[in-house]
C-alpha cells in the first residue's frame, strides 16, 4: 500500500511536469506529435528508473560513508549522463527510426531536470532503495502522461484558429496551465 501511494503521488498528485515544473524543456520541444512523445516518455522513464537505483546506491554507499555529500550534484549528474549514453546506444541498435525521430532530444535527457530533480528529491525524502525505484518509475510515468496529453492537444491545435501572437509557444503554455488546473484536482488523493 505504501509503495502504491508513493507511485500514485509521483504520477498524479505531485506530477513532475505539471505540478513541480521539472522537465519542461522536452515538454515544449517534443510534444508536437503523440508518437514521438510516447517514445521520449519511455526513454525518460527507463533512464529515471535506473538512475534512481544507481544514485541511491551512490548516495548511501559512497557519499554518506565517506562524508562527501557536497559532491552530490557532481556525482548524480555523472551517473545520469552515463545512463543516457547507454540508452542512446541501445536505441540506436534496437530502433533506429525512433532514435532518429527523437534526434537532439535524446542526448538532452541528460539535462532534463526531471531526472536530476528526482534523484535530489529521493534523497530529501529519505526513501529506502525499493521506495526510490518505485518513485523513479512513478515520476517517469507521470512525465509520460503529461507529455502525451499535451501532444494530443497540440495535434488538434494545428486545425484551430489561434490568435497570431499566441501561436506556437504561447498557446502551448496556456494549455499546459489548464492541464495543471486539472491535475490540482488530484490534490486530496494521497
Amino acid at each position: 500500500m505504501e509503495f502504491f501511494l508513493i507511485f500514485l503521488g509521483a504520477v498524479l498528485v505531485n506530477n513532475f511536469v505539471l505540478v513541480q515544473f521539472l522537465g519542461l524543456c522536452p515538454l515544449m520541444g517534443v510534444s508536437k506529435q503523440v508518437e514521438t512523445s510516447v517514445g521520449m516518455g519511455m526513454a525518460v522513464t527507463f533512464v529515471m528508473t535506473v538512475a534512481a537505483a544507481v544514485s541511491w546506491l551512490i548516495e548511501h554507499y559512497i557519499l554518506v560513508p565517506f562524508e562527501i555529500e557536497f559532491l552530490q550534484t557532481v556525482a548524480f549528474i555523472l551517473v545520469i549522463a552515463s545512463m543516457v549514453q547507454l540508452v542512446e546506444m541501445f536505441l540506436n541498435k534496437m530502433s533506429p527510426s525512433l532514435y532518429r525521430s527523437l534526434g537532439i532530444f535524446l542526448p538532452l535527457i541528460t539535462t532534463n531536470c526531471a531526472i536530476m530533480g528526482m534523484a535530489l528529491l529521493m534523497v530529501q525524502e529519505q526513501y529506502t532503495f525499493i521506495q526510490s525505484v518505485i518513485f523513479g518509475i512513478g515520476a517517469g510515468v507521470g512525465f509520460t502522461i503529461a507529455l502525451v496529453l499535451l501532444a494530443g492537444l497540440r495535434e488538434e491545435l494545428d486545425y484551430a484558429d489561434v490568435p497570431v501572437p499566441l501561436k506556437g509557444a504561447g498557446i502551448a503554455f496556456i494549455i499546459a496551465g489548464l492541464l495543471s488546473v486539472a491535475f490540482t484536482g488530484f490534490g486530496g488523493l494521497v
Binding site: L18, P163, P165, A169, G170, F173, A176, G177, V181, T184
Partner: peptide, 16 residues
C-alpha cells in the same frame, strides 16, 4: 502552479 504556465503563455504573447 497553473498560474505559472498561464502567466508565461501570456507574457510570451505580449513579447510577440
Amino acid at each position: 502552479p497553473p498560474g505559472a504556465f498561464l502567466s508565461l503563455g501570456f507574457l510570451v504573447a505580449i513579447m510577440n
